[in-house]
Design a binder for these strands. Structure first.
Lengths: 218, 218
DNA sequence: ACGAAAAACGAACGTTCGTGCTATTATTTC
DNA sequence: GAAATAATAGCACGAACGTTCGTTTTTCGT
């Protein structure tokens, strides 16, 4: 009388992998609050009610744990920001969707302490080593996705042809980081609303008449 | 045969205060690289070749050391960014000077690991306590200075009357943080040059014909 | 130059850090 | 269900953490 009901992909994973996932889910949240260096093995073990050594065995070293945490954060980021936006058609709608989903991902506290990568970026930005490299690579890729979205909007004729895609992607993400700063540090609850409006203004300023309308939520 | 030559203000300070200053000078540099939480008493003592307990006595607690470090960083920031810019006449020149000095202060590695406050902002942005509050207050004040500079430029007739000063100050600082991110994390050596150009473009886009020219360095 | 006050030191405290081991459970596989 | 394997726990380690305390050295006002 076993395996009567269908089992989900997650449940079918071997025990070890399931534990590993739950560890990393806690780790990314903790890291977004206390920093990646602040994610301590003992602290994690307490939170998950398991032994330090048992938890440790999943990774073998603190550095491996940090790398796994970055990778896990990346997946969550992809799931909440990139994947839903890529469902939109290429052009201004997709670019705008990336903006909206990024802001929503911060606002909705997908990570307990705001964007994992915002924290990790500034924590590791003047260090050396594989962890820093992993963070930098993830951010390069994110900037690349934004850049391609801008480029796609140009190719769709939604943005003027003379727009510098790299530069505009950078500008948009700068506003995003700034909004994060205002929202998290200054506790300005209107910061993210303002950032949405500013992003839209900037896109509209560079848009052609062909550009479809960009709707603000709510 | 003593005190023949004139003594500087720094040298005339009592011994304790002089040591305290040298500790904090190392602390801010260390914090800009390793984070404020990473500034450890033992590490600081090593760096300064003094005993942990001797160093510790200057502050009484780690939290007091952190508060003193924030205050020291604030003074250095003021000295390198705010004070020189306030020498410029109110209006677009002063606003532009704030931008240029901020970028130069990052580029010139006034702190070893980039801007102390950029690091501290994202390190403490989801914590509680007096250290976080000190950082937030410093940043509020900095944003206020930027906002007043924008407002001054409006009053001088250099910026259009319909410019939202708070919002534009926020936009400028967002570009600054973004530039820091590109320069420090992505190791993009052109990032700060681009940010200078983008700041200038944004100011010019909102400028009146009365606005004096904004010169890029070099 | 001397005595008081301030500063720096050395050793030790209880914790927590990351990381090994060995033993003991759970979970798979046949 | 037994054998093989994987996962977890327990314990110990050396190092570093923030902090305290008593002692020694240095500085400074007189």
């Amino acid at each position: 009388m076993a395996t009567a009901r269908p089992i989900t992909a997650k449940e079918s994973l071997p025990k070890g992998a399931r534990t590993r996932e739950s560890i990393l889910r806690v780790a990314v949240d903790l890291a977004s609050v206390e920093g990646l260096e602040g994610v301590t093995i003992g602290r994690l073990a307490d939170e998950l009610k398991m032994s330090k050594s048992g938890l440790f065995a999943h990774f073998g070293s603190k550095e491996e744990l940090q790398l796994a945490t970055v990778a896990a954060a990346r997946e969550i980021f992809t799931e909440h920001v990139i994947r839903p936006a890529l469902a939109e058609p290429a052009g201004a709608p997709r670019l705008w969707s990336l903006c909206l989903h990024w802001v929503q991902y911060v606002e909705g506290k997908v990570f307990k302490g705001g964007c994992f990568f915002a924290a990790a970026s500034f924590e590791f930005d003047s260090r050396k080593g594989v962890v820093r490299d992993a963070i930098a690579t993830a951010m390069q890729e994110w900037l690349g996705i934004l850049t391609r979205a801008v480029d796609g909007a140009k190719k769709a004729g939604h943005l003027k042809a003379n727009v510098n895609a790299e530069q505009f992607a950078f500008e948009i993400y700068s506003l995003a980081i700034g909004g994060h700063w205002g929202f998290q540090l200054l506790e300005d609850n209107k910061a993210l609303d303002r950032v949405r409006a500013m992003m839209r203004d900037r896109i509209k300023a560079l848009a052609t008449p062909k550009c479809p309308p960009l709707k603000l939520p709510r």
